[in-house]
Design a protein around this nucleic acid. Sequence first.
DNA 1: TTATGCGTTAATGTATACACAAGTGCATAC
DNA 2: GTATGCACTTGTGTATACATTAACGCATAA
Lengths: 220, 220
Amino acid sequence: MGAMSNVERAVSALRQMIFAGELPPGSDHLETELAEKLGMSRTPVREAALMLQAQGLVEMRPRRGIRITPVSAADMAEIYDILTELESLAAARAAEAQYSKADLANLATAIRDMDGALARDDLRAWAEADDRFHRELVRLGRNARLSMVVSVMRDQVRRARATTLFMRPKPKQSNEDHRVVYQAIARGDAQVAHDTHHAHRQAARDMLVALLEKHQFHGL
Amino acid sequence: MGAMSNVERAVSALRQMIFAGELPPGSDHLETELAEKLGMSRTPVREAALMLQAQGLVEMRPRRGIRITPVSAADMAEIYDILTELESLAAARAAEAQYSKADLANLATAIRDMDGALARDDLRAWAEADDRFHRELVRLGRNARLSMVVSVMRDQVRRARATTLFMRPKPKQSNEDHRVVYQAIARGDAQVAHDTHHAHRQAARDMLVALLEKHQFHGL
DNA sequence: TTATGCGTTAATGTATACACAAGTGCATAC
DNA sequence: GTATGCACTTGTGTATACATTAACGCATAA
């Protein structure tokens, strides 16, 4: 059952530790140190670090160790700009694809879950469903490379969310946007799907960047 | 002077061999084999392969060797869709940035070079200058992550160009588009810069995909 | 006190060794 | 002739060893 290589184990363990904040942004870690912590030799740790580096989660700097990449407000602006364009394209493509209601079930469920979470004031559940909505949207856009790029960017957003989720205003407008996008896709209106999602992401971008700048998270 | 690690050497050597067609798309190569060819041990070759895998140039499949990723017409459609969106955003951002004429010198030079190459019927020189134009455009958009994603995608386009460059019609419309984009950026018109470039890339996409499909390059 | 240079330390880059597992071919049975 | 299983081969995943070289501290000089 454990058909999982040490490299894979290292990748997911490191990801988990990064997202959990156990390896804080900006902190350095020697290969040997991480290898010991993960109970394996340096080789798979190095390979895992190389992969995470390609995704922008860590930087390997000779003799200084593996640094957990910090994400500044400026970084977040870059990331959201990319997300905005690529997800909007995915929304347009999804609309063009003439999906049936059944195909869009996951999208509908995610929206309903967000409503529910919001009513219960459960921000964590809301964030999880929001993630799910965006992931499904991109999947429906049917572009494997785009999905990969977006997922890398979304990982970065997830990291910042730990600090922003409870500072931001309640995401009320958000759900209305999602519903409009959903309906546009359902009736095959690519233009509206695209533009609505674009505006949605841009608004989120501006709000988050302002939030991060205000609270001086310039390099955490 | 040779402050270059074996991993770096391996990465650039492999890239070169891939772009030159010396390692043909779809071909498999054992780690040992490549290591011997490059005059180093498996370790740096493996690390180089991991990096190239992250960029989609190769795939590592256990026991089957390192495969040079083939690029099909469908892949090219995906790639161009991403390029279209991201480069257009860069064009818009460049326009918003209020660059001086001096800042746009590289752009202007690239356009002039393309004109010259086209007049001499030198398609290779044209392709080189075209690359330069697009690279500079993205740089002016000032989004480091976007630049990286675009450069990965452009690498894939470069690979296909070896087969398409001499089959496609002469890129005459292309230069007019570039000029319009340049002027829009110079006068700070983000909308025109964006939309013109978007249409430019989309046209290129449709032309190339049709070309590749027609000539049945479905997996070479 | 601050700057400069040297020696030490230790982390990395790379080579090598080895166990394991997947693919291959042959032999055997039907 | 086809199918099944077994032994063998061989590539990879991982551990380990080692040389190199960059960072750091200390001493010395201005």
